[in-house]
């Protein structure tokens, strides 16, 4: 990629008139919908991944490692295809809990953050409990929650939510308080109501922080769901991916265990890509983090 993106001739700078300096006119060439300069960033990790997998397969074959110790990637892929019926159902269950927990975390996190910034008193009295919830290891309280709640899906959801909601809460609080002080003064000058200040100033200013929180919480919700299910699974009362991993372990179906593991990782990556993409799309017009620097 040697040709630097140039503005079209009509956008060439004219003397003394900054009207023409408007960026965003320079469009880079695209291949398969992706900017040319973005391809190396996609290809490089794929090449590394393929090489690593090939090495793994080679070692397994050359050393003749039995599949119940370490299955090769080919066998794992075959297992995913063969057991897709059961695995896909478990995947769906885990994803459902993860997303439900993430949505609940967004709703509760944002609502609490707004409440806290409206009343210092409320923040002072409630925030410490949010912290306690955050620092308590989920493995330790998951059994209790499962016993108290009874319904297995609901208790998994609660566990995943506990893990996921704190980054959204703390990031959104930070964002709501990060509005430019001069802009806050300007809103006061024009006698903006509390609601107007929230709607036109604090919420938009909080958006990048909130989306950063969602990016973290997406992964955490998955981890929360999986961990809680491990706890539940030891009691034989679950059916998500974590339970498949446990079950395969008991039955020494190691390839299947790896297959479930691969699906958990793939879900994590997919959630990260999804939340990052949403964040980028929302912020691309104005926020520094989403603006591509012209070389």
């Amino acid at each position: 990629m040697t040709d630097t993106p140039l503005a079209s001739p009509s956008a060439a700078p004219q003397h003394g008139f900054d009207a023409e300096a408007r960026p965003g006119l320079a469009e880079e060439r695209r291949v398969l919908g992706l900017a040319v300069s973005a391809w190396p960033g996609v290809i490089a990790p794929i090449v590394i991944g393929v090489l690593a997998l090939a090495l793994w397969e080679a070692i397994v074959r050359i050393k003749a490692i039995p599949p119940y110790i370490l299955p090769g990637p080919v066998l794992i892929a075959q297992t995913i295809v063969q057991d897709w019926g059961t695995l896909s159902q478990s995947l769906l269950i885990t994803l459902r809990i993860t997303f439900a927990a993430l949505i609940a975390a967004v709703v509760v996190g944002v609502a609490l953050a707004i409440l806290f910034t409206q009343s210092k008193w409320l923040e002072k009295s409630l925030f410490p409990y949010a912290v306690i919830l955050q620092v308590t290891p989920i493995v330790a309280i998951a059994p209790l929650i499962i016993i108290w709640v009874g319904d297995i899906n609901l208790s998994l959801l609660i566990c995943a939510w506990i893990v996921a909601f704190f980054p959204i809460l703390s990031n959104t609080i930070l964002g709501l308080n990060s509005a430019d002080h001069n802009l806050v003064d300007l809103f006061r000058l024009y006698r903006a109501s509390r609601w107007q200040t929230l709607r036109y100033l604090r919420l938009p200013a909080a958006l990048p922080y909130f989306l950063g929180g969602v990016k973290i919480s997406g992964g955490l919700a998955l981890i929360g769901a999986v961990v809680a299910e491990f706890v539940a699974g030891t009691g034989g009362r679950a059916s998500g991916l974590a339970y498949r991993i446990l079950e395969s372990g008991y039955r020494l179906q190691i390839p299947r265990m790896f297959a479930a593991l691969v699906l958990v990782s793939a879900s994590g990556i997919a959630i990260f890509v999804l939340t990052s993409t949403i964040s980028h799309l929302v912020l691309r017009r104005w926020h520094e983090s989403a603006i591509r620097r012209e070389a």
Partner: peptide, 9 residues
């Protein structure tokens, strides 16, 4: 103000 103090969004 000294800075333009515009809403970036």
């Amino acid at each position: 103000f000294q800075d333009p103090t515009l809403m970036p969004w």
